[in-house]
Each structure stands twice: as C-alpha cells, then as structure tokens.
Write a protein that binds this DNA or RNA. Structure first.
Lengths: 356, 356
DNA sequence: CTGTTAGCGCATTCAT
DNA sequence: ATGAATGCGCTAACAG
C-alpha cells in the first residue's frame, strides 16, 4: 500500500540503513550512493513515516508555540517570527533540522494550556515556546512548573517569551520577558509630565502577569507624582479582557466614576482603540478633551486617528529570538533570563489636559 | 527512564493490552479493572507515547491548519474558530478524539505551503485545513492537487476554507468558498450608486485567487455602470501585498495616476486603512474628498475613523464549519462545495463624491 | 563507507 | 473480559 523505507532501499539496491542515513544527512554516504537513493525516493514518491522515525529516534521534529489568542496580532507577530526562525532550515537537504513549527491557541485558558502541553508531551516535541502573559493562580503555576520540568526531562526544550520566569527555572532553556512594569511606568510618567492627574486605567484580566506588571508600573508612576498621587487609584482602575469591547465599556464606566478625568491609559493598543471609540461616542475629542495611551505598539497604532501614544515592544525580535533559543541556535542569556526593554512612543493621542 | 504502557500494566496487574484498551476507550473493559488502570496511570504520571501509538495505529491525532499570514486577524479568526471546534472534545475521557489542532504559517509562499503539507503527511495527520486564497500558478495547482490526493489516499481528511475548489475535488472532503466576486461587485455597485465613476482599485498580490475574484467583481460592476464604465480600469488598478503599507503606497500611486479620483476600493480592510493614512497625509478628507472601502469586515473596521465601509465575511462561522468538517462532525454540503455569502456593510467612509 | 541486527512503545489480531 | 504474540517503519549501535 504505502511506500516504506525498505522499498526505497530495494529500488536503490542498498540497505535500509543507508537510505535512512542519506535521508537524515547525519552520516557520511558516498555521493553516488546518495544519488541513487534520492532518485529512488523521487521515483517512488516516498515520504518518511514520522511516527516511526520519532519512535525509533526517541525525538520528533515537532515544535509547539503556545499563544493566548491567535486572533490578536500581538501573538501573530511573536508566533510568526518564532515560526520563521524555527522553519528556517527547511530547504537544506531533505532533513537537517526540518522542524514542524506549529502554533497552539490556548485562548488564555489554563486548562487548554495544560492540555496542549500534554499533547505536545505525547508527541515528544523537540521544543515548546510559551508566549504572552501567564495566569497567576498558584495551583496553575505549580502544575505548569511540574509539567514543564517533565517535558524538559524528556528532552523538550522549553522557552518562555513575553512571560515572567517560572519556579522550574532550571528546566527552562531561557526566559525572555518584556519590561512591562518599566513601560507602564514610563507611559504614565509621560501623562503626568503633560499635566494629567486624573488618569483612568483600563487593566487586562485580573489574574494575568502582564496585567499586573503594567498596572504596577502605572501605580508606581502615580505614587511618585506626589502625595495623593495614588489616592483613589483603585476607583479609577477597571479590569477586562484584552479586546476592544472591553476598552469601550471600561471607558464608559470610568467616565461614570469620574466625568472629569483627563486621560486614559489602556492595557494594550486594542483596548485603547475601544476606549477611543467610546470617547468619540460620548462626544469627547482626543486628545483635546481626553488623552489616550495604549501598549505594545501594534502596526495599526500608527494609523489610528489620532495616532496612538503607546509603548513599543519589539515583538518580532523577541519572537525570533525565542525561536532561535528553542532551536538551540542562540546561546541563552546569562542566568537564562533576559528582559526586553519597552520604549515610549509619544504620538498624537496624548496632549496636555484642557484648562478649566 | 520514561514510563511506558508496560509499567502501567505491571502496576495495575493487568496486561499491556488491557491498559491500551482503557486508554483508547474503544473496547469493553470491566469497570473495576478500568479503575485500577486509571489509578496506575495517575500514580505513575504516565503519558502516552504519541509516535509509538501513531505507528501502531497508522493514524495520528494531529490536525494541521494552514494559513497565509498568522499576523493577519483574518486568518487568526478563521484558524481560531477551526481550532476551537477541533479541540472541542478534549475533556471527554482520556482519548476519545483528543486532537492536536495546530496552525502552520505559510507566509503565502507556495514552497512553504507544500513543505508543511509534506511535514503533515510525514506525521500522518488526521486532517488538514487549508485557509485563504491560493496561488494560481498552474504548476503549483497541479502539485498541490497531487499532494492533497496523496494525503487523502493516506487517510487524511482535507478541507478547503476560503479558497476555491481544486481539480482534485474527489480527494477533498469539502470546500468552503467565500463569495469574493459577489462581494467585490456589490461594494463597487455601492460606490457607483453614490455617484462615483473614477474609482481607484488597490488589488492584492496578482497571482492569488482571492485577489482575482474580488477584482473581477469590481470590474463587472464598473462594466455594468455603462459604456466606458470600465475604460481605463487597468490604469486605476494597483497590485500589492495584503498589508497597510501596500495600501499606503498604492494610494499615492493612484493619486499620481488620477488626481481627480473620488473613491478607492481596497483588497481588504488592512489595505484600506493604509489608504486612509495616505489620503490624510495628502490633506484629503474621507469621505468628503475621497471615499474608501475595504473588504472582510475585521473587528477594527468598525472603530476606524471614519468607520469603514466594507464587505462582511463570516470568518468565524466559516472557520468553525471547516473545523467540524475536518473532524467529520458535520455532513459536507452537496457536491462537497459551498459558497458563503458576502454582505455589504455601508458605513461612514463612503459618501457621494464632492461636486465641482 | 555500508550491511546486519535489534529494538523503540504501542495497537491489534488471536486465543482463552 | 482479558492475556499472549506479532508487527507497524524506522534508527542506532555494531560489525565489516
């Protein structure tokens, strides 16, 4: 029925082992022999049996990239960059590092995250890259650490990208974290420098690391602004998912709580866009009446009207680096941990507050 | 080192065969025995060896979803919906349809597309979903058809979503196509009804099916608008990739070719946003000076300023349906082919042309 | 450089 | 309902 390596061997008049060797390219084979084998492969239209190969070699060429939301460009950019870096060696011969880089959408659900890890563990994945903020529930962290340790023990390279380090640090090849706290802080400092004091904050889901760090940066800046700077901050913070609708509704809520606020900082650019829509619908001008700021600097932020002040995260570079680390093509940073800086991008959506 | 099924069997004092049976749940096993086995699995923290299982069973639980650009929300929405539908049965027992739905980013490159198909073929994937427009090169179509036929012959279910049918129709479970032509036509008819005659068109990459169909719809509407309606259409069409930068540059080019054009129709929403940016930078108002229309109705189109007139494609529904078809959880449409309608969404970015 | 020999871990006959 | 035996297709020692 289906063509096997033995068939190829017979056609090329060599042993199965030899065929395996030319296919894997990890062993010297005479050029003439290789030619014959390759020709037989072509003629028979042979395709290697992955499971059999993985079973015998006790490793597979599958690499999993876990993302929280595949429809969010944040993850698309990171995952795309990682995938490109991982699949980079596709052309080189028939094998030589032909990885199957694959993205798994967890929807931000701890259960699905774990589920995917188990599935990848089943497949004896060569590597796993976890991207984006993590859920902070202690149970989940413990479970994840245990699971990742097991994966690592089985030979899977684990890389974290855009997510803080885990207790199971030694099992993890490298952790690439974003400076969410610093970015959040600089963003709010920018607003304060413009003269804003009544600043609403639209945070992400409460239990996420990314959410917490960005919020902490914001609060730190407020506190530093002087006595009372952080007073009532609780009241001016609203949590919600990382989507535009959340930004829209949170803005209405913030306006209800303090009709006199002069600026809104959002958990990310998408949320900020929702905030802009809500403000416009309320007849408020941006930035004349209310300034708005986002986070991430996704491509559309530049095209927004007005263009969005935000914090730039080098998503592509980080994703690519994670990909290389997963492949073992780049030395891990000292201590296996690196923080990627976040840069303030001051644009048109922020300005000094209106004077009464 | 690693725990195998035999270890579980020993601990549960049963044969390996029995363990296999309870794990796969496709064979009667006494409740008490099952209990013991499950407990042993837990205690030993056993994880099935996917490759071994796939080798023995000659099938795997891997499902591939191919997309042209993972950073484009169009694909994120389709793939996310499909993935959710495919992973739906995760909780049900330990096996029973636990698929590993996985998205592969081809970057729109025929070579990478083929490469991923080969990799999935290696893995003996249970199903493959191909999404988005295809490259129209005859060679590539032939190669793809052959490849997909081979996949189908090996038991892989092939589903096309948002892409026209292929010659190898009988090998394909189902094709879900969007009415790109009809949508393109209705969009331009809308512009014509508003009074526009000098309409620039920013098309996608020349060799893509999606590009061609949308363009054909546009041209058909222009031709129907009356004699000379399609005159000079070539001159007012610019091709480019499906990204904002392309929209920006194409708009400048169109303006150069005809400074008096009153409307621009773009290949998709992202391109349309780039067009808006270019128009603004040229000091032109939307829609007072120039109307702009997109395609797809991605979430951000509603938030754009002005909100974008576009053509709505039910991406989520289509992706979910493709997922169900891939799993065999939905009967294929008659003839294995269905066209999904495209609906005009008339919003603020289009208006009658200014009067001279 | 190439052939021979053993498994890899599991699903599946076939018995019982 | 359960156990024993066989082989899936390939890679990895070993020889030579």
């Amino acid at each position: 029925m289906t063509v096997t390596l033995a068939d190829v061997a017979a056609r090329a008049r060599v042993s199965p082992a030899t065929v395996s060797r030319v296919l894997n390219g990890n062993y010297p084979v005479a050029a003439s022999t290789r030619e014959r084998v390759l020709q037989a492969v072509d003629e028979l239209d042979y395709v290697l049996n992955g499971p059999a190969s993985s079973l015998a070699a006790a490793t597979s060429d599958l690499v999993g990239i876990l993302v929280n939301d595949i429809a969010d460009p944040f993850f698309g950019i990171v995952a795309g960059a990682a995938q490109t870096e991982i699949g980079r060696y596709e052309g080189t011969g028939r094998a030589r590092g032909e990885k199957l880089a694959v993205v798994c959408n967890t929807g931000g659900s701890p259960r699905r995250e774990l589920n995917y890890l188990t599935l990848l563990q089943r497949q004896r994945a060569a590597a796993v890259v976890l991207t984006g903020g993590a859920v902070e529930d202690p149970d989940h962290i413990a479970t994840m650490s245990a699971k990742l340790s097991k994966l690592a023990a089985a030979g899977t390279r684990v890389v974290l990208c855009g997510r803080p380090p885990l207790p199971a640090g030694d099992a993890i090849v490298a952790t690439i974290a974003f400076d969410n706290r610093g970015g959040g802080r600089r963003l709010t400092e920018h607003l304060i420098a413009l003269g804003h004091r009544r600043i609403g904050y639209i945070a992400g889901p409460a239990e996420r690391t990314t959410t917490r760090h960005r919020l902490e940066g914001h609060r730190a800046a407020m506190a530093a602004a002087g006595p009372g700077g952080d007073a009532g901050q609780e009241r001016l913070t609203v949590h919600g998912p990382y989507d535009r609708r959340s930004g829209y509704e949170a803005t209405l809520e913030l306006l209800r709580r303090d009709p006199g606020l002069t600026a809104i900082a959002a958990a990310n650019d998408t949320v900020a866009l929702g905030a802009c829509a809500a403000l416009r619908d309320q007849g408020l001008r941006i930035p004349a009446d209310v300034s708005v700021a986002g986070f991430d600097d996704l491509p559309f932020s530049l095209d927004a009207v007005p263009s969005l002040t935000t914090v730039r995260l080098p998503l592509f570079e980080a994703g690519a680096r994670a990909g290389r680390l997963a492949m073992g093509n780049e030395a891990p940073p000292p201590g296996g941990f690196a923080t990627i800086p976040a840069e303030l991008m001051s644009r048109e959506s922020t300005a000094p507050p209106r004077v009464h």
